[in-house]
Design a protein around this nucleic acid. Structure first.
Lengths: 135, 135
DNA sequence: TCATATAGTTGCTCTGGTTAACTGTTAATC
DNA sequence: GATTAACAGTTAACCAGAGCAACTATATGA
């Protein structure tokens, strides 16, 4: 399957641009969105947890969280451990999350329009396997 | 197909890191590799052509080409049009291209190991459709 | 208690992308 | 033929996002 990576990567830039454009009205980018997504799904998330989940370094997470706090979308409380921060979406963050969730799902539907659902599910399965092989 | 983008994007970072690591010994990154790839496949490529093909702005292409010239992998000759530059791989560039080609193909095989070839081809077809829908 | 590990932060650097403004060349229009 | 518009490429300034190294503060455990 020569050229598979190339084929994969050709989609990246247009996709991320579409997502960032969609998020821009909320002063978000996809990298910030990822943190909100994680916070939404995991109560009491710590920064290290997020860092490991997305495979980025801690300073990157610190800065994303700082930005989201400035925007009023995220708040931090101390965790059990006094070293640890526990992040959570604020009420405003929840609202913004919901709005973006709707928009992203709509974009997803638009971009995958005309593609067989089975093919999409198989593609998602391929992603999981690729990810497994990459580690 | 909720979460399809997320699934797609989860592969990006590990993949690009693996590719960049593979290319690093040749002082290349994937973004530079793209230009070599295009030059290999299209004789007398112009910078605008490359810019349009990869969907990046002209200044980005200028800098990639400059870097590849410094490395001695690419050379520019004036095109028909005296405004235009025509880029081509040097002999050294050809050698490096071949070496990297082999390595990338091997990585591709490793990373797609255990995945049904039909599934891969269908995935590639999905990428084409996504790309079409994104424009 | 003292050494070590862990969570998070700060500062600096690098890559790679963008826009805007510019030069030089070609094409089109009058 | 002269002027205007379009085009190829470059430069400069900027921005986003990631990485590493060094740091603080807290926790663990020998």
């Amino acid at each position: 399957m020569q050229g598979f990576f190339r084929s994969y990567l050709s989609v990246y830039r247009p996709l991320i641009q579409a997502l960032n454009q969609l998020l821009q009205p909320h002063e978000l980018s996809y990298s910030l969105w990822q943190v909100m997504l994680y916070a939404q799904e995991h109560a009491h998330a710590s920064l290290v947890e997020i860092s490991q989940y997305y495979g980025i370094e801690k300073p990157g997470v610190t800065r994303r969280v700082q930005r989201l706090e400035e925007l009023g979308y995220l708040s931090c409380v101390p965790g059990n451990d006094r070293r640890e921060k526990s992040v959570a979406l604020t009420e405003q963050g929840q609202r913004v999350y919901s709005e973006c969730r709707v928009k992203i799902t709509a974009l997803e539907q638009g971009v995958t329009a005309g593609i067989d659902v089975r093919a999409l599910e198989q593609t998602a399965a391929v992603f999981r396997q690729l990810l497994g092989n990459l580690k």
